[in-house]
């Protein structure tokens, strides 16, 4: 049974103009969100994207844009409480909690 989260919320964007179809994004995506179609990447299953940012980071032509971040409620709460970006406290100190 495939697990699905909300539809149509992710910030993933692909610019077909700059995409060279190198296929790197397909390789790094853990959820099969992208597929190659006629020599270009295409957002095939956008709602499965978890905004990990791997595709953006490994796109040599910056054709992909995504607001990557920590998808963790307690991290978001901590971020709000401290007025910072969502943080997991994964800094390695003793006693910290992590995602």
């Amino acid at each position: 049974m495939a697990l699905k989260y909300y539809k149509n919320v992710v910030t993933l964007k692909l610019n077909p103009e700059t995409c060279t179809g190198c296929g790197m994004c397909l390789e790094v995506c853990p959820h099969g969100v992208l597929k190659l179609f006629e020599g270009k990447s295409e957002l095939f299953d956008r709602d499965s994207c978890m905004e990990c940012g791997a595709c953006e980071k490994n796109c040599p032509t910056h054709a992909i844009e995504v607001n990557a971040g920590v998808g963790c409620a307690s991290a978001v709460i901590k971020g709000i409480l401290r007025g910072t970006e969502p943080t997991c406290d994964c800094s390695g100190e003793l006693g910290g909690s992590c995602c």
Partner: peptide
């Protein structure tokens, strides 16, 4: 249950934000 979003491997930050 909401806290478990942090462990899941399919929830996006934008989605978690919306849920919260």
């Amino acid at each position: 249950a909401m806290n478990f979003t942090g462990c899941s491997t399919f929830t996006s930050p934008s989605g978690v934000m919306k849920e919260m």
